[in-house]
Design a protein around this nucleic acid. Structure first.
Length: 579
RNA sequence: UGGGGCGUCGCCAAGUGGUAAGGCAGCGGAUUUUGAUUCCGCCAUGCGGAGGUUCGAAUCCUCCCGCCCCAGCCA
């Protein structure tokens, strides 16, 4: 399915981790014949880059070991799940490059089986209906250091429990009045083993089952059993579920899953979730960013959602490579966002066509170039990939160059244009700055230059060198456009560490540039596909872009050692954070 | 003071008793019609700490320190 990945080819024996070690061993020892994993999102929000780690792991492992990976919606809580999210999740997983084939499932597909098994637990005395209120249950649960107290309803007979549970299903009780609990141990050191709730009453309409149910299984009860039903062999989840593993196994031990006839019983393994400095990856916070209007939506390019990254122009291959490079381990960690920028640039540098665009135009009049003349100069589309061919750029008497490429009083190491200085226009000519035009305020508004006709294409016959090559665009046929620059959404590497993530929002996370001038060849670009604006970075058309009203997003800037050298801020990228 | 985890370079991460991979970042230098790319070089006598076992320890033992998760009828 992922045919264009570079990862495996680069390090044949790399990409190995403790999960793959376990799977390889299970296969070698014959514990499992076919690896079956699953990616189990709850449809209560959009997928983000943290989910990408799980997706790449689950689908990646299935692919590598010739098994399969199921996409399963963990839709056990109708009060927070929506069809919009179900659709978005599928779109995003596909975009990332994975395919679940026919293996699309929902925990809700198993509600009837799950219910039958619950009655089984009741019959065997392993579960009971508790009439305590949520508050009473909490009070009786004990604390981290003190054991809990048994519920006064804990020792009801199986018959009574069964009758009550059926009444729960029949809708005879309001929300919150009763739950079904596993009868385990209220004194367990592991809090999740203190008679965990298996079913709760929720009079709510489910996106898939509608009003068929008014009791819904909890994650703990539904997850492992869904795994068993689907014949999942390796149930991979994040570290915080480690405490739940004993319950996962406890349930599997007591339910007649062997009758399912699956070749292997599922086992849960945990890995560390992905954290990236400067990003917020909590669904709750992301939901609030969207709901509160702090961003334009789930696919706002500043969002760490897959939809946001896609709109920003990040290629899915780059994201997969990032995940691969982060690695898989059990230690909590915070990844440097520079690694993400790196994998994005790495891929785009290799593939993106080059174009010229001027973000902050400075008019240049070439005094010795005839006003009525124009010429088409050849420019390669990719310096390292001849197959991408050549295009033509128009040269004329009036052009635009980047305002940042001129300084009236340049410091020592500034190589670009300055009064009296000669530079090369990429694919064009050498030009020399003769005069600076200013407005009443004293701001530089244009440059008068001369060009050397002998340097057509960018080389001087006499062999003289220039210190800089500038990108430019012919004024007459340049396309005006809006360009959106994205800066970190938050102002610190650990947003919300002081309590409120919203207090750490970066007021300058979106920078909109208007009046940018693009090379006309840019019109034919498909949305979401990034090109390199030479010397600036990678940019792609936004979905809002229209002919005559072009809008580009900056995916990521080029590395800029001059910015570092000059002490200015480097172009902010996906995750760069002011410390 | 309960239970479960984790601590190897600034950030990730290999390593599982035989004498510290790799990547990112950073720092030098070469090439360059993108101050990009590419290329070359540098970057842990030490693996949270202290003891111990051993010819030999990041790897085994003991104690200690630090960090993370768990008290939803969320997942």
């Amino acid at each position: 399915m992922v045919s264009d990945t570079t990862a495996a080819a680069e390090t044949p024996e790399g990409g190995r981790d403790f999960i793959r070690d376990i799977i390889a061993q299970d296969l070698a020892q014959g514990r499992v014949q076919t690896v079956v994993t699953r990616f189990p999102p709850e449809p209560n929000g959009y997928l983000h880059i943290g989910h990408a780690k799980s997706i790449c792991l689950n689908f990646g492992v299935a692919e590598e070991f010739a098994g399969r990976c199921h996409l399963r919606f963990d839709d056990t809580n109708p009060t927070r799940e929506e069809q919009e999210f179900i659709d978005a999740i599928q779109r995003d997983v596909r975009w990332l490059g994975f395919d679940w084939g026919d293996n699309l499932f929902h925990a809700s597909d198993y509600f009837e089986q799950l219910y039958a098994w619950a009655e089984h637990l009741i019959a065997s005395g392993d579960a009971y209906v508790d009439d305590q209120s949520p508050d009473e249950m909490r009070a009786a649960r004990g604390t981290l250091t003190e054991p809990g107290r048994n519920s006064p309803f804990r020792d009801r007979s199986p018959a009574e429990n069964l009758a009550l549970f059926r009444a729960m299903r029949a809708g005879e009780f309001p929300n919150g009045t009763r739950v079904l609990r596993a009868k385990i141990d209220m004194a367990a050191g592991n809090m999740t083993m203190r008679d965990p709730t298996l079913y709760r009453i929720l009079h709510a309409t489910h996106p898939r089952t509608g009003d068929a149910w008014c009791i819904y299984p909890t994650y703990d009860y539904a997850h492992g059993q869904s795994d068993a039903i689907e014949g999942i062999t390796h149930s991979l989840c994040t570290l915080e579920f480690e405490d739940h593993r004993p319950l996962y196994d406890w349930l599997l031990d007591r339910l007649p899953i062997a009758a399912l006839g699956k070749p292997a019983r599922p086992r849960q393994y945990e890995f560390a979730r992905l954290n990236i400095a400067g990003l917020v990856l909590s669904k709750r916070a992301l939901t609030r960013l969207v709901a509160g209007g702090h961003v334009a939506g789930w696919d706002d390019p500043r969002m760490p959602t897959l939809a946001g990254l896609r709109r920003r122009g990040v290629p899915p291959e780059a994201l997969r490579e990032f995940i691969r490079r982060v690695g898989m381990a059990r230690a909590n960690s915070v990844v440097d966002p520079a690694l993400f920028d790196f994998t994005t640039r790495e891929l785009l540098n290799r593939t993106a066509p080059r174009r010229m665009a001027v973000l902050r135009p400075l008019r240049v009049i070439i005094e010795n170039y005839p006003a009525d003349q124009t010429e088409a100069l050849p420019a390669v589309n990719h310096p390292d990939d001849p197959e991408q061919g050549v295009r033509e750029v128009t040269f004329s008497r009036e052009i635009y160059v980047e305002h940042d490429d001129f300084m009236e009083a340049p410091p020592k190491k500034f190589f670009r244009l300055a009064p009296g200085r000669e530079v090369r226009l990429r694919y064009g000519y050498f030009i020399t700055c003769r005069d600076v035009v200013k407005d009443e305020a004293g701001d530089v508004i244009a440059l008068r230059c001369t060009y050397d006709p002998a340097t057509r294409g960018g080389n001087a016959p006499d062999g003289r060198k220039v210190q800089a090559t500038l990108h430019w665009v012919s004024a007459a046929d340049a396309l005006p456009a809006e360009v959106r620059l994205y800066n970190p959404l938050f102002t610190r590497p650990d947003p919300g560490a002081d309590g409120d993530v919203f207090a750490d929002l970066n007021p300058d996370s979106l920078e909109v540039l208007t009046g940018c001038m693009l090379e006309p060849n840019l019109v034919v670009l498909p949305e979401g596909i990034a090109v390199q604006f030479e010397r600036l970075g990678y940019f792609c058309p936004d979905p809002e872009s229209r002919p005559g009203a072009l809008v580009f997003n900056r995916t990521v800037g080029l590395r800029d050692s001059w910015a570092k050298e000059s002490g200015r801020n480097a172009p902010p990228s996906v995750g760069k954070v002011k410390k």
